[in-house]
Design a protein around this nucleic acid. Structure first.
Lengths: 220, 220
DNA sequence: GCGAAGCTGAAAATACGCTGACAATGGCTT
DNA sequence: AAGCCATTGTCAGCGTATTTTCAGCTTCGC
């Protein structure tokens, strides 16, 4: 699960990142408003933590732009104590939840978890990808309407690759997504997993970028 | 389609109203418990969104009164995070669905749509599912018109699964919906419960998706 | 042609879910 | 109040699907 932390106060961002990483999320940071907007608009995040007071581009504006463009990932707003109207506007602009500063880190983590869980249960569950269809609700992949049997790990890998499509994903990233914290460096389990997935869906699904990682096949 | 939004937090009510209006519903608002009860009792709504914490008259009481009076429009309950017993009571009082705050507006809209669709298809409290019939009002499951004896917990599980049909539900989700929060996570009570339900309704009712969770059986 | 990166098949290790028996709980009957 | 019964959670053992590991092999880029 990939979370964007959009907060220009480095201390807060750092603390959040640490806690979220410990909770098993993959964290991306952005400190500048323009940057935040662009990345949220072009990359796939499972959730965004958005501070409203960002430099260059205001958080509310960013959020409204995203929503207008149809980006519907869950967004949790960080708002200063007492800024009541900010919260109102935030909700109206399409935020899913907000937390008031100063906050307890664990609370934010808990809420992000809740948001992601709810969102994944709801958001348009079928993604067409090449000749296959990824159904995130049924957690299965179908081809011509027929389910393709995949093991949990294979499914997770495929779902991850689909979500990161048109991007090269390193083995390390895959490891971080599919395995909890302590991963062995000297194992080739990702390679084996990729091989098994190819065996199921065809060799073309996942292309190897030698030295860099993997990416979804061209017609996918 | 006419929807009553019974929520005293004006911000939430406003946001809901906006989204529902955009989705083509006609919205009515009510902020006071007495008012909500009266209007739901005397006017015709296709669905009601009911916050439980209303002033003057409690949401659960309102719902129970409506049901006792034979009013059977679909009701979606808004409940605070972690108020597990509220949810259970809500369902038992005759609610058709609930959403936990904080929620995503689109989710509420989607659920209201689903509720209305379902209600117009069937006589609202009965849901046909395979060879079985789930009667949410009577809180029982029948087969060929004959009631199938289920324990309360078994019924809850089945109702939940029916509710989440065409979705894979993880054990964690089941635990969170059927048990109070402080529950031992390292026990296999869900597995046992599933086994017991299968013994009653047949092995095909609930399919195991190893490593992912459970789903309602194919012809259900 | 060489070395590193990636692939493969099979065995070994592990995780997951199922089962039957038992214990704790609480309601009901006598 | 005692005993009975239904209900539900706990536990240990089991079989199997799944995953990891490992050793050797192939491929790619330089």
């Amino acid at each position: 699960m990939r979370v964007l932390v959009a907060e220009d106060d480095r201390r807060i961002a750092g603390a959040l990142g640490q806690a979220l990483a410990a909770a098993g999320f993959v964290i991306e940071f952005a400190f500048d408003g323009e940057d935040v907007w662009f990345r949220g608009d072009t990359e796939a995040f499972d959730a965004v933590i958005l501070d409203l007071g960002l430099p260059n581009l205001d958080g509310l504006t960013i959020l409204k732009r995203w929503r207008r463009a149809g980006r519907n990932m869950p967004v949790l707003i960080l708002t200063a104590r007492g800024q009541w109207n900010e919260r109102v506007e935030g909700i109206e602009a399409g935020a899913d939840d907000y937390v008031v500063k100063p906050f307890r880190i664990e609370e934010v983590v808990a809420r992000i978890r809740a948001l992601i869980r709810r969102a994944s249960g709801f958001s348009s569950s079928q993604i067409e990808v090449g000749e296959y269809m990824l159904d995130t609700r049924m957690k299965q992949v179908t081809r011509d309407g027929l389910p393709v049997p995949l093991t949990p790990q294979e499914y997770r890998l495929f779902a991850f690759m689909v979500h990161q499509r048109s991007r090269v994903v390193s083995q390390l990233e895959i490891t971080e997504h599919l395995y909890s914290q302590d991963f062995e460096r000297d194992s080739n389990s990702v390679e084996v997993l990729v091989a098994r997935l190819r065996k199921r869906l065809g060799a073309g699904v996942i292309l190897t970028r030698r030295g860099l990682g993997y990416t979804l096949g061209g017609n996918f």
